[in-house]
Simulated scan of single mutants.
Amino acid sequence: MDLIAGFHHTHAPLALAALRRGAVAVVEKPVVTTEADLDELEKHLDAGGRLFACFQRRYSPMNAWLRADLRLADATEPMLYSAVVFEEPLPARHWYRWPASRSRLVSNGCHWIDHFLWLNDFAPVRRQTVSVARGGTYTVYVELANDAALSLVLTSAGGSRYGLREHTELRANGVTVTIVDGARYTAEAGSRLLRRRRVNRLDAYPAMYRDICTRLVTGAPGDTAREIRATADLTLRLDTAATSDTGHG
């Protein structure tokens, strides 16, 4: 097993090296930063390679609550997923700013993109748009074939006493779920409070690694090529469009 967590542009080459010698690759986000690496990775996964992507938002205890509260299993109304994310401004020479790392969509926005796709069983993308304001704020819209929609704003404008901040709302079937900073959860329906919980937002990390370790030991399959491609392809296409919009990386 190879645990891969380095400069973003090294993730895919290291994962490919592991898969070529028959090892299991456990890869931090982003899994890939180039379309060519994505194509090569897909070939190895289709051939039986095992890879586990470390998207910790999939492992939050809030997922079970929101699936139940929004009644997602009923599939009677599409999900509307809206998130505003504040990221700390980076030093001028931080490696996240390297051209090889691509934009903040690839570096960090991939978490929310993946979570949205994962909650919708990686339904095909019908439409996607992205715009970048002069100050570097990214506004993303994604619509899936099942009519679910994502609205994502990534910014470092303003300030925060706590570092990364997020405000996420998910709506379906007359219910609104609000998640603040990955720690506070509220579900409401009309005048009724369905659920209110508070968790340690870091709890998703040990849960993720416990799950991955269990699947490794038991020989369970890793992420499928379809799942890896869904998140990576959409993220890279949005990033390419954003780069074209700004005229720089």
Rank of each mutant, 00 (worst) to 15 (best):
T155C: 12
P78Q: 06
D203I: 05
V199I: 10
T186W: 14
D147A: 13
G190F: 06
F55T: 05
L3M: 12
E227P: 00
A189S: 15
N120C: 12
E88L: 10
H111E: 06
H115T: 04
D147W: 06
V175G: 02
P124C: 03
V85L: 01
L66A: 02
D37N: 11
V217P: 05
V175L: 03
S103T: 15
A232C: 13
W118T: 08
L90C: 09
I179S: 04
T10C: 07
R104Y: 13
A36G: 11
T240L: 05
V106H: 01
L117R: 13
I212W: 13
A5K: 13
H8S: 02
R171G: 08
S151Q: 12
S82Y: 05
A123T: 10
V199K: 01
S244V: 11
H111L: 03
M62I: 03
R171T: 14
E28N: 15
T243D: 05
S82M: 02
G174I: 02
G174A: 05
V32R: 01
T218H: 15
K29L: 14
A18W: 03
R21K: 08
Y162L: 01
I179R: 07
G174E: 07
A230V: 01
A183F: 02
R67C: 09
D223T: 00
S131Q: 14
R104Q: 11
G109Y: 02
I212P: 11
T10Q: 13
L236V: 02
P61F: 08
L117S: 09
I228K: 00
Y81L: 07
A68D: 15
L152G: 08
G6V: 07
A189R: 15
R184S: 09
G49W: 11
R67D: 05
F86M: 04
G249M: 07
A17Q: 09
Y185R: 00
Y185C: 00
R197G: 03
L16C: 06
T33P: 01
E169C: 06
G182K: 07
E40C: 09
W118N: 13
E88D: 09
L66R: 10
Y185A: 03
Y205K: 12
A75K: 09
T218S: 15
L41V: 02
H11N: 07
D114H: 10
T129V: 11
A12H: 03
N108K: 05
M208A: 00
A204V: 06
W65M: 10
R134N: 14
